[in-house]
Nucleic acid binder design. Structure first.
Lengths: 205, 205
DNA sequence: GAGATATGTCAATAACACTGACTTATCCGT
DNA sequence: ACGGATAAGTCAGTGTTATTGACATATCTC
């Protein structure tokens, strides 16, 4: 029942025919429910390892800025808002809500803090005057930069430090494969949105 | 001042001589503070991209189990405890606290819920009777498995789905490089601990 | 002008974390 | 066997981040 197309050398991921989950009972829709190729881990430890590594990596990844934020009396939520507003100036509230996946009320609390303390400023939209476009102030840019620095350092080191990678290995490959993996971890329907967003970045090289 | 050892083809990570940060002012210790090779992104967009991708990947990664947990009336904190106890039966409270990086009080709240509802059981340590060894009950194992399944699926797909990867590419390589990157993201002093922990896994292949 | 949209705001609640202080049981070295 | 250290449990209070539901305002679009 499970056609293993596994690749020769080692246990990693196999592809098996599996009936895809459908929320419908509509016969017309179910008719087109052909078996699809569903990837599986022949050794579930490989999957568990990756799940745990993601947990540990994220744990330490957020610990860096947390230390700095505590000095300013802010939390992680403030960091996320500041980060995205810094990187995508002119972001609207709706866009920010879609990125962060929190409610308007949750966003408002932290956004209010950042505006009141002069890190973020609002401007009424020009095309659509209902929108509030968000921008970082000078202080906001500096703050975002300070937070970014520690995370940037960790990520840069991670690309170079990888055990098993020789000095001859191209870190550009490590970067590309990390980006590829992380992008593929994103919900498929959201990938285009993320790509579109990231294409809007304004920082100079 | 910044010696670029960048690799030919594309902009990714360069290595520059940088004075490492030292918390000390002790001259003896400072004397041995030789410049070390500090990796940098020549194009900071590469770093920012990776930081954001990690955010988005983690956001969607935890969203899967969140939906299931909500049905049971549990939260993320319960999932984390259940996951680690399931995978490392006999885990002690102290070990769990070190993994999760939360306080005893925070752990106790969720652990109590899981014990009261029959997903986790405690046994007094045999070597050291002060310790409480944690184990999943049958129900706990099933619950953990249900939560694991959706995350496993996302991770397995991510290794196969990666855009730019042809069908000829070895997903074993994708797995190895994702593991390498995530492990390298972990605080260096913690990597050994994580490796040691993961070597203790008990699940059959 | 009507309905949809973007934002802001009120009140109440829950999940998850923290600090600080204290207790109990057990282990280990002298 | 005593004393200090360690593992765990617990009490009370607090803060951050999130939630829901309801409603208000301004603006856009047709």
């Amino acid at each position: 029942m499970s056609i293993t197309l596994t690749y020769p050398c080692r246990s990693s991921v196999e592809v098996a025919t599996v009936l895809p989950y459908r929320a419908t009972t509509d016969p017309a829709e179910l008719a087109e429910t052909a078996p699809i190729m569903e990837p599986r881990f022949p050794d579930r430890n490989d999957g568990d390892d990756l799940i745990e590594l993601l947990f540990f990596a994220y744990r330490d990844f957020v610990a860096d800025p947390d230390r700095i934020l505590a000095e300013y009396g802010f939390g992680r939520a403030h960091h996320r808002v500041l980060h995205f507003v810094d990187r995508y100036p002119g972001l609207t509230i709706a866009e920010l809500l879609d990125i962060l996946r929190i409610t308007k009320q949750s966003l408002n609390r932290v956004l209010k803090d950042l505006i009141e303390q002069g890190y973020i400023a609002q401007r009424t939209g020009t095309n659509d005057r209902r929108q509030r476009l968000l921008f970082c102030t000078e202080a906001g840019i500096r703050f975002a930069e300070e937070l970014s620095r520690v995370q940037m350092r960790r990520v840069a080191r991670a690309l170079v430090d990888q055990p098993g990678r020789g000095a001859t290995d191209d870190p550009g490959e490590a970067l590309a494969s990390a980006q590829g993996f992380l992008l593929a971890m994103i919900e498929p329907e959201e990938r285009a949105t993320v790509r579109r967003l990231m294409a809007r970045r304004t920082k100079a090289a």
